[in-house]
């Protein structure tokens, strides 16, 4: 079983390089529309864009089954989409509409969806670590064969509960993968200023196998994730992926003047040379798996889907304030 098929683009099979391209372009175009809505003051709150990191979410989620679990982060739109979320329900949630995934009660940083195994985006840095470990624990106890992936940024390397979780996962051989997206910046601070030692020495200390992966190469991510997932699913315990990537945009949409913490030439280098969508497109063409016309067609179809999704969300009604007290208790 792969992630839920997306009916908008026909002829793109699950688990194939073309499917991964489609999923990455979906995230890219989704996020561009978030940026547009936000800068036009049509979206409340904060918007943390995943642009530049698409290969991480897609490479990993394409290695998962639909009933596997993920936990996501404040920068979570990409994880949610890659795990099978429907764009129109995500946009509705981002705009605070009743039709959204969480009835407008969660917003951008809390998209959650049991139907796609999404335990929720979490706005506490490292907040998903113990939850994903617990889902893996339940899967093991209940004999379900499900794997849980905990996505987190390198900023979460500073959170103690991550290490408590890795210790528990290894002691109890739980099927959980800790996926550290190192986009180099803990908000506005370079990770070298916050992170002593080697990131992968941390999982090694608990006996977790760790792989360092080029997070801009979706095929490399997918291959590494597939190895870890297969290992976890057969009962060999947790794993750790360090995915070197880059946040093309600011910490959030309003983070425009960034030169005080990262130089423009660095951004330009990553965008020009290390764009995961462009890299994968070039590979598809060079391997003869697609031509530019086909890629253009996919992009056009996805763009139409995203525009329709935005329109759906904009036309959807807000929740009735009378219902604010609902869902506090089950």
């Amino acid at each position: 079983m792969a992630t839920a098929p997306n009916p908008a683009t026909t002829g793109v099979e699950a688990g194939t390089p073309l499917r991964m391209y489609r999923q990455m372009i979906a995230i890219r175009l989704f996020e561009e529309r978030v940026n547009d809505l936000y800068t036009r003051a049509l979206m409340p709150g904060l918007a943390h864009l995943y642009i530049g990191e698409e290969a991480v979410a897609v490479g990993i989620c394409e290695a998962l089954r639909a009933d596997d679990y993920i936990t996501s982060t404040h920068r979570g739109h990409g994880h949610c989409l890659a795990k099978g979320a429907a764009p129109h329900l995500m946009f509705a949630e981002l705009l605070g509409k009743e039709a959204g995934y969480c009835k407008g009660k969660g917003g951008s940083m809390h998209i959650a969806d049991p139907a796609t195994g999404n335990l929720g985006a979490n706005a506490i840095v490292g907040g998903g670590a113990a939850l994903a470990t617990g889902a893996a624990y339940a899967s093991k106890v209940l004999g379900q064969g499900r794997v849980a992936v905990c996505f987190f940024g390198e900023g979460a390397l500073g959170q103690g509960v991550l290490y408590e979780s890795m210790n528990l996962a290894q002691l109890w051989k739980l099927p959980v993968i800790y996926a550290c997206e190192n986009n180099l910046y803990n908000e506005y601070t370079h990770y070298s200023e916050t992170t002593a030692g080697d990131p992968v020495a941390r999982p090694a200390a608990f006996g977790l196998p760790a792989e360092t992966v080029d997070g801009q190469d979706v095929r490399a991510v997918h291959a590494a994730a597939s190895r870890m997932v297969e290992r976890a699913r057969r009962g060999d315990g947790p794993g750790f992926l360090l995915l070197n990537t880059y946040r093309f945009r600011g910490h959030h949409v309003g983070d425009i003047a960034r030169e005080y913490y990262r130089p423009k030439h660095e951004e330009q280098h990553w965008m020009a040379e290390r764009d995961p969508v462009a890299l994968h497109a070039a590979w598809l063409v060079s391997e003869g798996l697609a031509d530019q016309a086909m890629l253009d067609r996919i992009e056009k179809e996805v763009a139409a889907e995203m525009d329709a999704a935005v329109e759906f969300a904009q036309n959807a009604p807000y929740p009735d304030p009378q219902r604010v007290d609902e869902d506090v208790y089950a």
Binding site: G134, E164, L168
Partner: peptide
């Protein structure tokens, strides 16, 4: 029996509660 990791095992229980235990 858990390690002396109150936050870790409580959070683990939250995730396990969400997923069937």
């Amino acid at each position: 029996d858990t390690p002396i990791s109150e936050a870790g095992f409580t959070g683990l229980a939250v995730g396990a509660a969400m997923t069937g235990l």
